[in-house]
Design a protein around this nucleic acid. Structure first.
Lengths: 342, 342
DNA sequence: ATGAAAGCGCTAACAT
DNA sequence: ATGTTAGCGCTTTCAT
């Protein structure tokens, strides 16, 4: 015999309605009755049937808003794929997913979009946006109305968000360092960082230096340059640095212009190609791994980030017992020419 | 308005029952009616509600048998964790999961267990067992009775199984080679293989040599020894080889005695520790990664293998449109000291 | 504070 | 070959 709410209700001498109230920590149950039901549930090892939950829950429809930066290309595709996959599942639960994009340098527009969502009556928000005080305040406003926010891919620190879903940046830097240590045990390393104003880039560097220091390297083993994520500038500075110092035997790319770095190295026609470690895995980087111009890439798994944030939102809306940590880190995969997937 | 079987049925001027028949490719629908329904479904972009499916499907209960080798320790724990997680979900679908273990060197016992499952009336089988003709025949017998079999972790080649869920062994060897190439660009490499009679070990070696050759290495750059997965023997041969040839600067471990290799190297107190690349990630190897005795491990993700095989079995039993490939490869992760999880 | 009952979308048995 | 109908287990009004 299967154990259902009915079984529990009968055993506890109450109705299904009351059992349901206990199951979801809802009010209007006498404490003694609540305890009795809790005991029966434990005794029978009762587990609610997720399919039945979903179906019944779907009677009342809810809405979740998703805000994305108006990017194009790989990042957009991957994050959309994750969102789309979850959207399907959430629909099964009667949760509608609304998606809006905004130019990442216009936080006012972003806030406006959130306001619009609010008038549409959203019950939760998933947002990928650069840290900004206007947005931070808006999240506080939602929180005051009991509308949970989840940030993903890029966190809005110290905001009233429920959690952040994304990469552990410091750790990703440490992983990169560890790879470098094994491939370049004693040469000098060039670090090309996009922009030291970006906290994401700073955190990666921090992790990288942290691990390098633990392994006995010192600051003098590294040369750091900022590329400001511009192709031509990157091309130029990388070439310059290699001409200045022939002993450079590794490059760590903490920036978005991986292709420019690769190009620079190609142009230099060095006697020994330096080891290249970079972050993220757009199609261009996949090609560079295959051609051998990049040796290792650390993947963000943007797809999972989109998916997981909506998934967690679902739990939130259904008040499941699932415990959500403030930082929900996604896996960091090490990719080389042999385990890239196209 | 939500699009349900009802919507489709009305639009096509038929009943829900007929729509359901079309949805699951069941007989007794006139071809013209079937086509009309198919068209309406496409037009409305109808997607069945998974929760409702699961719930209704669960009315009739089915059974799936799982056969595992009687191993202890890490492998067992991980595979069980995967099976257990899926078991929960399958229960939601009214699918009962029966689990049996057998000593891996006694295929007769294994066949007997399958027979027992058969009398219990299983509707599908997931099996992890070494390739063996007795088992292969048994799988054919099940197939004749329309009971699908899925092999996982270790395949039973050329059998009537629906698919194999596990690692792409050749590819895992290639990934190992690529790491070696970057860490040991011109030293010699010692390859410690468990047993050349194991096709799994041979396939990994094949992939390794394949990639090495592509990159200009030749057979003379490698020394291969068989360890027969015995601790003391491994310890001895590894020491021997290093004493014979001081230029060895990398070890590729295609065997189960990673700890023995690590021990050997420690004992030798070489001036420069060789780079160590190995397969699988039991707790002992995690510790060796942390301590720096092993540099890279290629993870099998045994957990996912257990989970995925039951997941696919569910699709099979529900005749979903999901397309199952004969080889369902699981991800191969590269692990170093900084991305191990304990 | 608790109970009763309707219904979520689908499947399968039964009826036609 | 097709239609009708009774649930699957849970949530949520509405009564009491």
């Amino acid at each position: 015999m299967r154990i259902t709410v009915e079984t529990v209700a009968r055993m506890a001498g109450v109705s299904r309605g009351t059992v349901d109230r206990v199951l979801h920590n809802r009010p209007n149950v006498r404490p003694e009755v609540r305890n009795r039901i809790l005991e029966v549930m434990k005794e029978l090892d009762y587990k609610p049937n997720a399919a039945a939950s979903a179906l019944a829950f779907s009677r009342k429809t809810r809405k979740v808003g998703v805000i994305l930066p108006q990017w194009k290309g790989f990042f957009k595709e991957e994050i959309s794929r994750g969102i789309e996959e979850s959207r399907r599942e959430l629909n099964t639960y009667g949760i509608e997913v609304l998606i809006e994009e905004f130019a990442s340098d216009e936080p006012e527009i972003c806030v406006k979009k959130i306001s619009d969502f609010l008038s549409e009556g959203i019950n939760g928000l998933c947002i990928c946006a650069q840290d900004n005080s206007l947005i931070r305040e808006k999240i506080a406003e939602l929180a005051a109305k009991d509308i949970p926010t989840i940030t993903f891919n890029s966190d809005i620190a110290d905001s009233k968000r429920v959690c952040f879903v994304g990469q552990d940046l410091v750790r990703s830097g440490r992983i990169a360092a560890q790879i470098m240590i094994k491939c370049v045990p004693n040469g000098k390393i060039l670090i090309v960082v996009g922009n030291l104003k970006f906290s994401a880039h700073r955190q990666r560097l921090e992790g990288f230096f942290e691990r390098m220091t633990e392994c006995g390297f010192s600051r003098s083993d590294f040369t750091v340059v900022e590329s400001f994520n511009e192709y031509s500038r990157t091309l130029r500075v990388v070439k310059e640095k290699f001409r200045e110092d022939e002993s450079l035997s590794g490059i760590y790319m903490v920036n978005e212009s991986v292709a420019a770095c690769a190009e620079a190295i190609k142009n230099l026609s060095l006697s020994k190609k330096p080891i290249v470690v970079c972050h993220d895995l757009p199609r261009s980087t996949k090609a560079l791994l295959k051609s051998g111009e990049v040796d290792f890439a650390l993947e963000q798994d943007i797809y999972s980030q989109g998916r997981k944030s909506l998934q967690l939102m679902k739990y939130l809306l259904m008040d499941c017992e699932y415990v959500i940590k403030p930082l929900e880190f996604t896996q960091i995969n090490i990719i080389n020419s042999e385990n890239v997937e196209f």
